[in-house]
Amino acid sequence: MARSMCWHCQSEMAGEYFCERCVKVQPVSKDLDYFTCMGFPRRLTIDPRQLETKFYELSRAFHPDFYQNKSAEEQTISLGNSAMLNTAYRTLRDPIQRAEYLLDLEAGAVKDIRTSPPADLFEEILELQDTLDEYRAADRDSGAAATLCAKLQSERTTLERRQQDMEASLQQLFTQWDALQDRGEATDRARAERDRILKHMRDILSNRTYVKNIVNDLVATIS
């Protein structure tokens, strides 16, 4: 699914990444999304082993190691394709990154609805920031520090549970998304459902980022 014409022999391209006539490697188009590049449908559940197998297969096809004896053009294509493949694999391998990437691709409908964290989460984070600052300023050996540390520890447990809950909800949305795609309906209802899932996913993803950052901060401070 590279360009429609071979860069080398100018013949019509039917093969995927190699011209069928002159067998030259073709540049992966800049417009190709990572799902298509790796030959997977736009689904949020991907079998990691299948993905890895495909990654290894394409690595063998593109890697510069195998283009040492080839022309300068082919070497440049090999380098570009490998870099693109590595990015595609890295993005699709991680379920969260994969979902974020899919949101980017499908953004059209939900792009302009800006989200901010829900009020309660926002409050919680602000309060926690204060406690963190207090703890950082406190004398490490004092009783006050010990109390603060205990408080932070319990906050951490709560937040980590919250993160897990979010990930569970995401997982459900992923399944819903995939089912909707599999049905492939073009009705208004299906479209509305699609936008609902995307928006919901985006809200959770951005909240999760808040939570994750503050948890990282917490862990770094108290350990």
Binding site: P64, L79, G80, S82, A83, M84, N86, T87, Y89, R90
Partner: peptide, 8 residues
């Protein structure tokens, strides 16, 4: 720890 070749 990004696999090379890597581009951005």
């Amino acid at each position: 720890n990004t696999t090379i070749p890597a581009g951005a």
